[in-house]
Write a protein that binds this DNA or RNA. Structure first.
Lengths: 212, 212
DNA sequence: CTAGAATATGAAGGATTGTTCAGTTTGAGG
DNA sequence: CCTCAAACTGAACAATCCTTCATATTCTAG
């Protein structure tokens, strides 16, 4: 298990009844909406509660303070994202390396774009908290899954697997984020994805010699 | 000229005497330090003033409000960064494409790492403001400079120059940022830079046919 | 049905912080 | 040296916001 959340950021209690779960979902969704409409530095506990249709006090039964709320939101999102990556990596076991890479790019891209508003909201929320632990945990899962996938490729020598995995993920994750910041339009985004596949494929070939 | 800063974010007045310039420099440096020590969401006008050895009132003679201060700080940084990129791109005119790319990577990497603390501080500060105008202006300058550089390469066909430039910058900028978030160590960083050069070079070759 | 646990309420307290402005000090030009 | 503008000061004000807790409501197990 990756390093747990720091004490002060951990949730106060978990929901035991159905209505509590509903409440929590509403709170998380409201947090995203507030993040998008008024921005991170005007995100107010009261505002979130209002938007969620709950009382402030309710929120404070689950989160010790505002930071804990945002931390939990990010944790939720990154966990789900890591899940998707792991699934994709498992599905691709034994496939040709280039196909693996395309699947990985596709997976990450889709996860980020299917709810672009959430992606934006979380990118912006990050400054409000110390999320190093979350980033590390996510990176560890993504690295492990990708490395295992690549190791199963029949057309790849397994030397330098470690550093190649790190580079691939750094490049893919970083590029996608930058694409969001630049607000690339549909066509530019499509081109970027194609280019990314080419570039990642070239990296895989760089040590395994040209195909026969 | 790129779109100027929104009215509300523009500086109130410019320094006319020497001491005012000193004061402003101190304020900017203090802002960075506060950003690093207490984080963006505890950045206080009073705290910044204290750290800078100035009074709060002084700051408010130059910046209408806190956001304007952070905006100006980012503007300063991005302008300087764009300057460096333009210089590098000019120097590389007429050189082989692969060398251009390596120079570009080197330039950007060096600019980000030579004062890593500033880089981190600004990455974190961004959530506090609406910096779309800044990003756009910076991207426009970087794009133009890079495109002009690549157009002068003797070993490159100029088709798809537009989209290739966009991809190269997106990948380089994004990867560097992600590397910072992951806190890569020295050796991992070096490997990443090497890989980046390989990948970008491969993109350049992808439409111009294999070398004879 | 009843008791106790889980959940929800929201007004009030306490603390922080952004911003102003009337007044002081410093520098530059004549 | 004198004068005016530029630069600086910092206590005080107004506003916002986080967090608590005593109380009320709802659910569930027996």
């Amino acid at each position: 298990m990756p390093p747990a959340a720091p004490r002060s950021l951990a949730p106060r209690k978990r929901p035991r009844q159905a209505r509590a779960t509903v409440t929590l979902d509403a709170v998380f969704e409201a947090t995203i909406q507030v993040l998008l409409t008024v921005g991170p530095h005007r995100l107010t506990t009261t505002r979130v509660a209002e938007r969620a249709g709950v009382s402030v006090g309710t929120m404070y039964q689950y989160f010790a303070h505002k930071q804990a709320l945002i931390y939990a939101l990010n944790e939720r999102y990154l966990d789900a994202l890591a899940d998707k990556i792991e699934v994709t990596c498992l599905e691709q076991r034994g496939m040709p390396a280039r196909q693996m890479i395309e699947a990985l790019i596709e997976c990450y891209w889709r996860a980020k774009t299917e709810r672009a508003d959430v992606t934006q909201a979380l990118y912006r929320s990050v400054a409000e908290l110390d999320n190093e632990a979350l980033i590390d945990a996510f990176a560890a899962r993504a690295d492990a899954a990708t490395k295992a996938m690549l190791a199963s490729a029949p057309d790849l020598d397994t030397q330098e697997l470690e550093s190649m995995t790190r580079t691939l993920l750094t490049v893919i994750f970083g590029s996608v984020r930058n694409a969001f910041e630049r607000n690339l339009d549909e066509v530019a985004a499509r081109q970027l994805r194609g280019h990314l596949a080419v570039m990642c494929g070239a990296l895989l070939d760089s040590r395994s010699g040209p195909p026969a």
